[in-house]
Design a protein around this nucleic acid. Sequence first.
DNA 1: CATGAATGAGGTTTCATTCAT
DNA 2: AATGAATGAAACCTCATTCAT
Lengths: 203, 203, 203, 203
Amino acid sequence: MNVQTKEVVYIPKSKEQFEEIREKSRSIIMKTALKLFSANGYHATSISAIAKEAGIAAGLMYNYFKGKEDLLVKIIEERFLDLNRYISEQLPDEPIPDIGEIIDATLKGIDSMKDSWKLLISIMFQPDVSQIATEWIGKLSLHQQEIYEKYYVIKGIKNPKESAQALSAVMHGIFLSYAHSGDSAEVRLLRNTVIKTLIEKGI
Amino acid sequence: MNVQTKEVVYIPKSKEQFEEIREKSRSIIMKTALKLFSANGYHATSISAIAKEAGIAAGLMYNYFKGKEDLLVKIIEERFLDLNRYISEQLPDEPIPDIGEIIDATLKGIDSMKDSWKLLISIMFQPDVSQIATEWIGKLSLHQQEIYEKYYVIKGIKNPKESAQALSAVMHGIFLSYAHSGDSAEVRLLRNTVIKTLIEKGI
Amino acid sequence: MNVQTKEVVYIPKSKEQFEEIREKSRSIIMKTALKLFSANGYHATSISAIAKEAGIAAGLMYNYFKGKEDLLVKIIEERFLDLNRYISEQLPDEPIPDIGEIIDATLKGIDSMKDSWKLLISIMFQPDVSQIATEWIGKLSLHQQEIYEKYYVIKGIKNPKESAQALSAVMHGIFLSYAHSGDSAEVRLLRNTVIKTLIEKGI
Amino acid sequence: MNVQTKEVVYIPKSKEQFEEIREKSRSIIMKTALKLFSANGYHATSISAIAKEAGIAAGLMYNYFKGKEDLLVKIIEERFLDLNRYISEQLPDEPIPDIGEIIDATLKGIDSMKDSWKLLISIMFQPDVSQIATEWIGKLSLHQQEIYEKYYVIKGIKNPKESAQALSAVMHGIFLSYAHSGDSAEVRLLRNTVIKTLIEKGI
DNA sequence: CATGAATGAGGTTTCATTCAT
DNA sequence: AATGAATGAAACCTCATTCAT
């Protein structure tokens, strides 16, 4: 009696193990949802369709997101953060990149998330979904404008703010066209028109 | 059958009278649907909401349209036909309008259907609804391109087809921006950038 | 041509016909719901169970009630209105009924809605359902108290208000006991104790 | 199996130590559940809400209780046992307490578990939850009745059984009123009416 | 041509419970 | 003993569409 004995006991998973599992599930849900939202549209994609495609129970989604719209919002946020990060990484601090490089880095960034870009834009036009995408487009737009303005200041262009606004507006048009037609000739035409114009103006 | 019927002395209406009645009902349904679709989105607008707003019974819609999606498609078609017609009316055959006039006629046309334009574009981005809008945008685009090309030929510009394509692409960007931001400064900036560029090029 | 012809046309149902149909459906839904709520409790009774028992599609309920809780509230209101009406009908204006008659009319009223009374009381104790029942019990209680006070004033009892409050409280206890034990000996004991006491006090 | 295990040198805890740990967990679960059930109702309180409030994992509950309903039943039983014990402790064997003291001890007992009393009563009215509460109320009632009867026998009252039943019924009404209105004026009115009546009768 | 009650399939969401660790 | 991710059944509810009149 009172002898020390060896015994096998179950150890609950550690915090890290749980974190890993959660991250994996969360990730597959978002990935699958993005895929289906993009392919079929937000409204036409049901939770159960996502669950089926992801190979999980429908209820599981609600362990990670407050609801369908929250899932969408989280996807949008993540994608826009990715985009901003990507663009920043493309542009060197020194030497100052010229305007063509800036534009192309931006377009390349969008191209890197081609599949989801169309979804993001479509959400922006749907009054019944949310304003999140619109806000993110706004943030992205502002971010671009600041880069353009900084560039124009360095180049000594007069009215740098107004010029930056104009360029931002044109780029905005390109963004939308891109969503509509993919990496088509149309987008390249727009790009070339813009860049040629700017170069002709000596910028 | 135990059907509630009534024997009536039936004074035949002329085909025209019938058509008039039908056209009136059809029209109010489409008008109301367009209004609600634009305000709240296609998916968020229910048939009964349309019926209520239009002051008719929900079932009546099915006398005129195959279903909700058919209603949408018919609206889209009508709006695009309206737009094409409008633009054509704005442009005189003689004297040959210059490119600025052509562009502005187009923008004015879109402005005349401002409220529904955003809906049309949003539909274009929703793969689950229909490809009709995309097709119509395509037709519109082609129509514009032909006008541009004709103009360029007359003006003796070289590569008229390619130039027309470029212009069409830029206009496409403007159309989309317009849907996104309404008649904002952004759209005017785009328009001015385009026209200025073209004029500087001597077109 | 242009000859008058006889023809059979369908006539839509009249407003009255629709009203009749609606009233019938509404009634069967409420009746069935009351039955099941009383038998199994509010939370344990699902909409689909009600629909099945009533022989209708589950969705139909939502043509008549905003939701499950609204259905409950409407039932409660109706039952309490019935009760108040019943009690009033039992009591003659002249000659002034004595206190025993008043009490018995009230108890008889509750007895007439025996099956639902338990449900009403149970709802009153469920913090997660609604305060409607509590409010209705309050209204009923106040109504009774006014009757008692009026009686005591006529009889020339001193402190009629306080006496009415005391009697109301005792009756309240009886109401609750009734809900708990049905028309058992317990309730009659309570009733007799109350009436005997009052009579012994010469009221 | 790919089970995460650990070989441990197992220092056996004494049965008492184990019991202590178990009792502590069991106790916090019951306490928390009672609190939430009382505040929000049984159906509106989820297992995970209890777990969160108690600071434990949801699954742990199932080590101690068969399920949610079992947890409820165990809580009810414990509370009623507490109540019976409390009332007994309040009443001295000698000298024989008079009827007012007996009544007040009972009411004081209920007052000591004020917060849970309403829950217990509410459960009593919910046929879908369990009959346990009803049974316990029955047991409590019987217990009281025996005390009353014993008292009446000692006092030499004629028909002690019937008198005890009557008093028990009145007390039952008070219990329920108490649940409904808390320690309000209404309950005191009931109590005073009862005691005054009994004293006037010389009991 | 017009009505609106009724259907029924499908949607989102909740949550008690299980189970590998 | 304890963890919490995952399940799956069932809940409430919406709404396009049908159909008897």
